[in-house]
């Protein structure tokens, strides 16, 4: 029983990170119909900012703020430079554009920074662990859980109480009508990218605090997981992204924890088979967006 609770705690912490990642993709998708595969590179940028801050002995809390800020700025720049010229193009064009950005950034990191992993100096407290109700939980896991909760509350407040957030929801439902109502397309889209940058930045800090290093290709795995989580939850639905993130994490952790030893090698295919199974019963994901068929720009 203890083992089960312990593994569940592990899953919740991982689920939080997956949820943040999937939300980052979902925010942009809900408005533009674009899966931004360069989302992972926003995380890499945050990671490198953390690395340089560590070298320059910047206090960690300030480094975190700078890292998240860098991801937001990079996301806005990405939209302005790369996605605005192709706005309104077919989904395939947008997708290829996002892959191109990801590759260009990876090559820049490799050639301008280093092809090798760079160590990120982290406060020792992040490697500690505490015992709560008999469960041993790492401080970085607690940080992940708390950040996820804070981000979800913030997102909920932003989407329901803030003008830009409401405009974004309106745009997600029907962009043309929203524009007729006087909503600026540029503001909404730049807002969506800034929000996805914020989510990427927070996720990056949590991700890097686990692995203590940053390399040019770091963004690939998280964006893949986010993509699976977003599909599982229902593409374009924010609540779905959160649900998908947590479900994916629970599937992964429980399989790793409880699958018989001889079958561990097949953990990933089995995990993905479960995802497919869920999609067979709920083709549009767990909590599909009401506006799946809505017109995107």
């Amino acid at each position: 029983m203890d083992l089960f609770l312990q593994q569940s705690a592990n899953a919740v912490a991982l689920g939080g990170i997956y949820a943040l990642l999937a939300l980052g993709l979902a925010v942009v998708f809900s408005i533009m119909g674009l899966i931004n595969f360069a989302h992972g590179e926003l995380m890499t940028i945050s990671g490198y900012v953390l690395m340089y801050c560590g070298i320059a002995a910047v206090p960690f809390p300030l480094a975190v703020i700078l890292a998240i800020g860098a991801a937001i700025l990079a996301a806005i720049a990405m939209e302005r430079i790369a996605f605005r010229p192709v706005r309104g193009s077919s989904g395939a064009t947008l997708l290829v554009t996002s892959f191109a950005i990801a590759m260009i950034l990876q090559m820049l990191f490799q050639n301008l920074i280093s092809a090798r992993s760079q160590p990120v100096l982290l406060p020792a407290i992040l490697s500690e662990s505490v015992t709560i109700f008999g469960l041993i939980i790492g401080v970085n896991k607690i940080a992940a859980i708390i950040s996820t909760i804070v981000m979800l509350i913030f997102l909920d407040w932003f989407m329901t109480k803030q003008k830009t957030g409401i405009a974004m929801r309106a745009a997600a439902e029907d962009f043309s009508i929203a524009r007729l109502m006087g909503i600026h397309a540029n503001t909404v889209i730049a807002g969506a990218f800034a929000l996805s940058g914020l989510l990427a930045g927070v996720a990056a800090v949590l991700w890097v605090s686990q692995r203590a290093s940053v390399d040019p290709l770091m963004g690939f795995t998280p964006v893949l997981k986010a993509f699976i989580a977003a599909i599982l939850g229902g593409l374009g639905s924010l609540k779905g992204a959160v649900a998908g993130g947590f479900l994916l994490a629970f599937i992964e952790v429980y399989l790793s924890a409880f699958l018989p030893h001889g079958m561990q090698e097949f953990r990933e295919p089995i995990g993905l088979a479960i995802v497919v199974l869920v999609l067979l019963f709920r083709p549009n994901g767990l909590l599909p967006a009401k506006t799946l068929a809505a017109e995107k720009v």
Partner: peptide
């Protein structure tokens, strides 16, 4: 135990 390259999380293996 086995793991996959680039696996995001090792806490379940560590718990075991």
């Amino acid at each position: 135990e086995t793991y996959s390259l680039g696996q995001p999380d090792f806490s379940s293996i560590a718990t075991k």
